[in-house]
């Protein structure tokens, strides 16, 4: 199954019954799959007139308490940024997929990771955070999609699945987990009072500064809880490693090929692969920085995650960087050469 199709199928199995999107390469298969499947399961598929419209439809559906998703690629996510900020400001759960392509501007259509800042630092305005999951295989795409809906509902936050064109287009076998989605009762949702309760109000406008501050602080506490409990990463052989590579998504798989070659040639290399980009696995990187001779970050960008890696190390060890951009994909051989430079 293609990565894009796997996201769509997993979302449906996670009880997502509403999808609003607008086509853009390289993620259009998600929309196409939803268009085919949603009517058959009594769900809603709607191709909006623009990305801005689509994200605001998500805002509305999330307010009504249903599981809802939208997907796009880089330029489209920029357009959605305003809506994402509103959704965060109204404390609503939803899932947003970004299958990243080269930027800025219309950029290109080949895979990139240059939307890291946009995803983890906030594309929209205001003090808000979004959980960002970065799968590296089609199977993990499925697992992350299930998790994304659960996390969104649990913390009432937007959750982003950050892939790249390669992950969206590639096909690998997948197994869908036999689990019934956790669908919590949403007593805050605006889905009709039936004259039995006071109306719920969903809003992101608070004119009184003390009210707004109270809300922001309460939200921050939720973010702190997420940062404490929901960090996910994978590590390999970092305990004795002289050089530790940090990479996420499909890049991590390419890095792994270089890592295996290094190990074979007697270089003590290790890998840390962040799965959540926010919350960022800073603790393990801080610990690793105490032991390793160097950390090297590899990305399909000119260096974005590397800033978070440097922050996490607190200067305890040198942090190097290797990146390709614009849709170019790093080759294992080039990464191996970088590794050799540090040992």
């Amino acid at each position: 199954m293609k990565g894009n199709e796997a996201i769509a199928e997993a979302a449906i199995r996670a009880n997502c019954k509403h999808f609003f999107g607008y086509p853009i390469t390289p993620q259009t298969e998600i929309s196409a799959y939803m268009a085919k499947r949603m009517p058959r399961i009594g769900g809603v598929f709607l191709q909006a007139e623009s990305e801005v419209a689509a994200i605001n439809m998500v805002y509305g559906a999330a307010g009504a308490g249903v599981r809802v998703m939208t997907s796009s690629s880089s330029p489209g996510i920029s357009l959605k940024a305003e809506g994402i900020s509103y959704i965060a400001g109204a404390d609503l759960p939803c899932v947003i997929v970004n299958i990243v392509r080269g930027g800025p501007g219309l950029g290109g259509i080949q895979p990139a990771q240059s939307d890291y800042f946009q995803a983890v630092k906030g594309a929209g305005h205001g003090d808000y955070k979004m959980i960002v999951l970065a799968p590296s295989s089609v199977q993990e795409v499925v697992d992350c999609t299930f998790d994304a809906f659960d996390l969104a509902d649990k913390y009432r936050v937007p959750v982003m699945i950050l892939g790249d064109g390669m992950l969206g287009q590639m096909m690998e076998p997948v197994v869908f987990p036999e689990k019934s989605p956790k669908c919590e009762q949403k007593d805050w949702a605006t889905c009709g009072t039936k004259n039995k309760r006071k109306p719920n109000i969903i809003n992101s406008l608070y004119i009184e500064p003390q009210d707004l501050e109270r809300l922001i602080i309460a939200r921050q506490q939720r973010y702190n809880a997420i940062a404490e409990k929901e960090v996910r990463f994978e590590k390999e052989n970092i305990e004795d490693a002289d050089i530790v590579l940090v990479a996420y998504g499909t890049t991590a798989r390419i890095v792994k090929a270089a890592y295996e070659k290094a190990r074979k040639n007697g270089i003590k290399a290790g890998i840390i692969r962040p799965i959540t980009l926010w919350p960022f696995p800073e603790k393990i990187i801080a610990e690793t920085a105490q032991r390793a001779k160097a950390i090297v970050c590899v990305e399909m960008s000119m260096g974005q995650m590397v800033e978070d890696v440097r922050l996490a190390t607190g200067g305890a060890c040198p942090v190097g960087f290797y990146g390709r951009a614009g849709g170019m994909v790093p080759e294992p051989e080039a990464i191996y050469d970088v590794i050799r430079r540090y040992v």
Partner: peptide
């Protein structure tokens, strides 16, 4: 490529299929 990927799959092997797109 797709036929080859499925061929691997029916023989219980690991497979991946990556197209050029655009």
């Amino acid at each position: 490529g797709k036929a080859l990927a499925y061929l691997g799959m029916v023989n219980n092997l690991e497979v991946s299929w990556l197209p050029s797109y655009g």
